[in-house]
Design a binder for these strands. Structure first.
Lengths: 300, 300
DNA sequence: TCATGATATAGAGCTCCTTTATGGGAAGGT
DNA sequence: ACCTTCCCATAAAGGAGCTCTATATCATGA
């Protein structure tokens, strides 16, 4: 078996054509290089160098070997550089999966900040339903997932609540006078409702809230994007069910009005799901750290 | 600095996902593998494996590294296979340079035999003038060269005579009666002469022989190919100056007749030129051996 | 709770790489 | 011719660090 360290010595010797110089480059002594080359030649049972009076020169066989070794070492060097990049986050990638609505309204500012701090880290986002996100976390396809809680326990996952989410009903100018007194679920159900598409956890959550109060609702307008939901509400097309934090600005500006329900909408939690038993990549760990630094302490 | 042997251990560990198995594959103990991986992680200052209860699993960084290491090792393996081929002559190449006329009439049977014995060795031939051949030998572009002697001494070359060459004058049927008695150079110069093109060493040799006897000649027909020279002579177009061994058959068959000169044509030598101080490649050494086995002992 | 199968750690041992010292050959200058 | 210089090979001693044995520790599953 060829001792791999020999290849390094071979490489230097071949490039310099001088065992003494090769030794200097490697910070070892010339006999050491001599010895290594000799070992190598014995192992391969062929001569790699011609010994000339003014140094060494590759034999044809040596030249052939050099071609392979050079390429091989170039790869290893590239690998080590890559590792170094990953280490100091000047490379690598951060892969986050999240429920559709969380990206823009929750994650975006952090991604922006992260990207500014580590511009070399490639950010890959994938969205999907909560079950798809957790699956990707388990597979290792994403570093971690952000999901709405509660979700099913899974022995392979750690799930940690990191943020509260307070939903609310909002309407445009037309609902200004409706916004004074608390409304029953039934009352709210009478308005044209602007809801996220069926399948989203927010939609399920809203339906659940209504159904608990024996109100069956039907979305008048169903959209895939929370932004559009808010825009439509501003235009007065109906009452939207959205997270309060997404419309803080609009409420303050008087573009939207909150319709308070008689029965409080439960607080929801945003959770972060990661694989148990695995250390996240450095890129991911840094992001996690950044996220947590900003979060109020929560009882999980 | 990463000790390269670590990579081998890393590779096995990554592939098996089990340090103990990796150790078995490498015929070392598990703590040895543990130790190596740890060294490596410290050297790169990042974690390469997640330690799970049922083995190890690559981290993202580890996966990235594995890609490089696998490719790199594949190359080294390929290199070792190549060396093995070169060693047992199931690969590699034999590069011979020779003066034009030598290939067909001298070298061909050996090349044929060599190729039959080592069909995997690629044979590359290059022809040119003697000076070009020796130049290629010095550059290492060819393993060795076959040339007509004498040639200039060169400190970088070893030149060894390996075969004698006896030139002669031959003519066709028309010269049958001329072939009885020895002829002077002057007599021979009167015949239409069939000679190799100017520039060839055979041509120079012939001219030299004539001029030493104060005969100035002029080629009536000048050809680049010895075969054509012989054909023309058989057709009776004149007297050709060729090596006797090339026309042995024709002389025996009575297709050509030798015109004996009064002054003997000196014996020439075919020599083999190789670089001094360098061992030939194995492919070349074998050919050289095969060549020499067939040669009569010669005083150089 | 015990057995099993992993990895981590500690400490001793020994391999084999490295070093120092030396020799010899070739090239180049005097 | 002789001396100097440069370079590689060899011998023998020394030691760094890999490897081994033994053991601890932890997780899993029966």
């Amino acid at each position: 078996m060829i001792h791999l360290e020999w290849y390094r010595i071979f490489l230097h010797a071949a490039r310099t054509g001088n065992l003494t110089k090769a030794a200097q480059e490697l910070y070892i002594t010339q006999p050491s290089v001599s010895y290594a080359i000799k070992q190598m030649e014995q192992a391969l049972s062929l001569k790699l160098f011609h010994r000339l009076s003014k140094g060494v020169e590759l034999t044809e066989e040596g030249k052939a070997l050099l071609a392979y070794v050079e390429q091989s070492f170039a790869l290893l060097d590239a690998g080590e550089r890559k590792m170094s990049q990953l280490k100091d986050l000047t490379g690598g990638e951060l892969r986050i999966g999240a429920s559709d609505s969380l990206f823009k309204h929750f994650l975006f500012p952090y991604l922006d900040k992260y990207h500014k701090q580590y511009p070399e880290v490639r950010i890959r986002l994938s969205h999907g339903k909560t079950s798809e996100i957790t699956q990707r976390v388990k597979e290792g396809t994403v570093d971690f997932g952000l999901i709405h809680l509660p979700t099913a326990e899974d022995p392979l996952l750690t799930i940690q609540a990191i943020m509260t989410l307070q939903d609310c009903f909002v309407g445009g100018e037309a609902y200004r006078d409706k916004a004074v007194l608390p409304l029953t679920a039934h009352d709210l159900g009478q308005f044209p409702l602007l809801l996220l598409s069926a399948g989203s956890s927010t939609r399920r959550f809203a339906e659940h809230w209504f159904s608990q109060q024996n109100v069956t609702i039907q979305a008048d307008i169903e959209l895939g994007s929370i932004d559009l939901l808010i825009e439509f509400a501003k235009l007065g097309l109906g009452v939207a069910f959205v997270s309060k934090s997404y419309v803080t600005q609009e409420l303050a500006d008087g573009l939207l009005y909150e319709l308070k329900p008689t029965v409080a909408i439960p607080t929801r939690y945003i959770g972060i799901a990661a694989r148990r038993d695995t250390t996240p990549s450095l890129a991911a760990a840094k992001f996690h750290e950044m996220l947590m630094a900003d979060m109020p302490a929560l009882v999980t």
